[in-house]
Design a protein around this nucleic acid. Structure first.
Lengths: 221, 221
DNA sequence: GAACGGCATGCGCATCTTGATCGTGGAAGA
DNA sequence: TCTTCCACGATCAAGATGCGCATGCCGTTC
């Protein structure tokens, strides 16, 4: 899952970035509204964290532009404490959730998770495909109830596929969502991780559609 | 489905081409307006992606010429960001949709899909013929609700037929839309794939019209 | 130094293609 | 109407192609 943070205060921004990376997200950080807007328009994010108190362009303006451009990603807005007017304005402009500064990083992560879950149309924090279960809250994966140890990248890849189960996902799409900007597009890392996941969870979990991509949901032979 | 991209910036062009090929399209790429216009006039495309900011000939001119020549294919225009005048002019000149640069590849694909769908007169992303259903979004095919595994080429062929159900489609037309330029036209690949699809989906799905081609929609016996 | 992520290589096999052969529909003639 | 023949399409099998897989190594990080 790939996140964009638009936050003008460098320290807070960096801290958030590393916290979220620790939680298993691919994170891009933008320090002003202009650049942030551009990134959000260009790249594919699964969620955006947007500080309203930006210099240059106002956060609300950025949000508004995105929505006018048709960007669908869920946006979590950060506001100064007790700024009710900001909150209302933010929700009007198309924010999906909001959080008052200062906040606990844990709460941020929880809300983020909920946001992404809702956006992909899943009600619960557990995703099931076949005998594999993935809990987005705890970040745990089980096979037939038995815990399986996945590395960070393996988890990201599996998680994305499970959030889009049934859909045929191309390698390009996977790369765009698992890595942050600037990643060599012609390398076989995706294949390698698919192989490793299959070793841990069984061959049938991820099915290959030659020439198109990968898909969850066991193939009907 | 066969797409023409007219884009002067080589990197973006190549990237688009490979992304769209990954999504299952046959793609021709042209790097200048003159050549692009020629290709569009000569070959049969299901959709065209046209950058307005071309050197030599302006993209609008190209579009205008095509329309004057009676070319009907849907055109998706790429414009510089926030260039409203370009947008208006493009739509006036006969563009079917427009997308501001920079854009997300996924959005491009979604719009392209919608364009092709609309052009073939379908409202939804699901195409139904008899007991066969094809979902263009997820790239899946079901027979009586049961998923059927098709290879990339089989899918392309079936998809084209389903987008033109009822119409008699000649073998030449199929070849032109499933492969990109430079493909040996006298071979019996089409017949082979028709046979294979029939094996997977049933004999009656594709009916043969001798001397003319193939058609979906069960024959009236 | 252990674990993980990324990269390169060679191999195997699914898929595509081709050519050859078989089957069949339809026109023409009796 | 029936028969014959021809051409077009269907099917099959073998060969070529290239995609995806596995493996091992190296650099980096913790």
């Amino acid at each position: 899952m790939r996140i964009l943070i638009v936050e003008d205060e460098p320290n807070l921004g960096k801290q958030l970035k590393s916290t979220l990376e620790g939680a298993g997200y691919a994170v891009d950080l933008s320090v002003d509204g202009e650049d942030g807007h551009y990134m959000g328009s260009t790249e594919n994010y699964d969620a955006v964290i947007l500080d309203l108190g930006l210099p240059e362009i106002d956060g609300l303006t950025v949000l508004d532009r995105w929505r006018k451009e048709g960007r669908q990603f869920p946006v979590l807005v950060l506001t100064a404490r007790d700024s009710w007017s900001d909150k209302v304005a933010g929700l009007d402009a198309g924010a999906d959730d909001y959080l008052a500064k200062p906040f606990q990083t844990e709460e941020l992560i929880a809300r983020l998770r909920a946001l992404i879950r809702r956006a992909s149309g899943n009600a619960s924090s557990e995703l099931n495909v076949g005998n594999v279960r993935l809990d987005t809250r705890s970040g745990r994966v089980t096979l037939d109830g038995q815990p399986v140890k996945l590395t960070a990248q393996e988890y990201k890849l599996l998680s994305y596929l499970m959030h889009h189960k049934g859909k045929v996902v191309s390698r390009t799409e996977l790369i765009e969502h698992i890595y942050d900007q600037d990643f060599d597009r012609d390398s076989n890392t995706i294949e390698v991780f698919v192989t490793r996941i299959r070793k841990k969870l069984g061959q049938d979990v991820i099915s290959t559609i030659r020439g198109l991509g990968y898909s969850l949901e066991e193939p009907v032979s």
